[in-house]
């Protein structure tokens, strides 16, 4: 950082003769861009070639579905509360299970979601995690509201992220 601020402070009077002439500097710049032209490219040709994100990636939030077929979510509403974009709506209801509360309705409006991951961070049950799914396209507003049917994801598909969270959260 110190270096940058120094170079920012450089005024015209600080320049050497050759820098003032500017032509050698242009040549340097041209050399740099030319070097880049022959370097390997970073582009991924998307539909054919897909980016598989690392576990630290925050894709669309999903609900964890246990192997027993039950969701972990207890509908505490903290994700809904913390969501800065008001994307999450939860309606709790009572169930006979040991954890007496479950989400009767759990909706994420993907048009509102900003992928900040606060819902995941605040979740006391590790029930909502950020997946690797970044392919989100809808043709109308209604489709953008993901209900439990779309959100529930088997825990086996989310192992990466859950491990990452346990390690770094």
């Amino acid at each position: 950082m110190a270096q940058t601020s120094d170079s920012l402070k450089k005024r015209k009077k600080d320049l050497t003769f050759w820098q003032k002439i500017y032509i050698p500097e242009i040549a340097k710049g041209l050399a740099l861009t030319f070097k880049n032209m022959i370097r390997p490219k970073f582009t991924m040709e998307y539909p054919e070639e897909k980016f598989i994100p690392p576990p630290s990636y925050r894709g669309r939030p999903v609900l964890v579905l246990e192997e027993t077929g039950e969701e972990r979510c207890v509908a505490c509403g903290l994700c809904s509360r913390v969501c800065p974009a008001l994307a999450i709506e939860v309606q709790a209801a009572e169930t006979e299970r040991e954890k007496e509360r479950y989400p009767q309705k759990f909706e994420i409006n993907m048009l509102r979601c900003i992928f900040c991951g606060l819902c995941e961070e605040v979740c006391p049950e590790e029930a909502i995690v950020m997946s690797k799914d970044y392919e989100l396209a809808f043709t109308n507003r209604e489709d953008a509201i993901y209900g439990k049917d779309k959100l529930l994801t088997p825990v086996s598909q989310l192992k990466d992220r859950i491990e990452f969270l346990r390690k770094y959260k």
């Binding site: 207890v74 509908a75 505490c76 903290l78 954890k99 007496e100 509360r101 006391p124 049950e125």
Partner: peptide, 10 residues
């Protein structure tokens, strides 16, 4: 108990 997530009083 650490019940706050499912507790109505929260």
């Amino acid at each position: 108990p650490l019940d706050c997530p499912i507790c109505d009083e929260a």
